[in-house]
Amino acid sequence: MYEILRKEILSDVNKRMDIAVPDVARKARAGQFVIVRVDEHGERIPLTIADYDREAGTITLIFQEVGKTTMHLGMLEPGDELATVAGPLGHPTEIEHYGTVVCVGGGVGIAPIYPIARALREVGNTIISIIGARSKDLLFWEDKMRAASDELIVCTDDGSYGRKALVTEPLRELLERPDAEIARVWAIGPAIMMKFCAATTEPFNVPTIVSLNTIMIDGTGMCGGCRVQLTDGAKFVCVDGPEFDAHEVDWDLLLARQRFYLEEEKQAVERWQHTCRLVEAREQVDTLAEREVVK
């Protein structure tokens, strides 16, 4: 069992947790992920290691509550324990000196892009970052990203904060800058955002790296559920990735594969919300009963 040491609510649906798992923290590097299981009945989901503290023996996970598992995770508090934290899995990001690098983080993708931007900057790259979300309340870590970047562009889809734009717009402008010598782009976020980032950079021939988040079970290459189609054949996200050349990914297939269990995911969420309502109702009844007793 792995204890939650700290919890921070970044926005309504985005939460941060520091987990005590010293031997994973010892080995973790930017770009890697862990497989998490909340309890004995839980499913195994991959979550990117957003940060780590080797001395404290902790890793930082950031997740958006989108399904039953992440909702359940979001309800846990410091002192609670997770049934499984296995990792660090996947290849770490190839941190080298490239020159000027654009780091794009969309939504909860801001979390995994942060350690990459920081590590790239540490080895001398010039970092221009773009972070974006649907609206202001879904943004987080602006300060951290600013500190890890030479230039930061913030945008929201609805214009409630920063520039009103999708992340691809400032990305295109950067690529079009006459003096721009962009060596590489990292883009992490929802699959659809990564797809359009890839489409944006392709005409400019700028190597673009994405970190894919697919359905996974074991995370060690055993099930093949995470397979993606690249130009030169199928690859497993868990052991061959999670980072890939964005221009080689078959995005439509990836999006279709992500939808495979949509119905079941919906069913699980409904069941979870129903359970939560029952628990809440039960608590209200208990409180009323207590008041009765006090009277």
């Binding site: 009945h41 839980g42 499913e43 195994r44 039953k68 598992t69 079970i217 074991d218 055993m222 099930c223 093949g224 559920g225 397979r227 189609q229 199928a234 078959d250 297939l253 279709a256 594969r257 939808r259 495979f260 079941e264 069913q267 699980a268 069941r271």
Partner: peptide, 28 residues
């Protein structure tokens, strides 16, 4: 790579290790 093609490993792991046949009592 179409949805519905899977390795026996994935299918059996979902059923046995993750107890998928008891979904939604089990999450997988």
């Amino acid at each position: 790579n179409y949805n519905g093609v899977m390795s026996a490993n994935e299918f059996l792991t979902r059923v046995n290790l993750m107890k998928g046949y008891l979904f939604p009592q089990y999450d997988t």
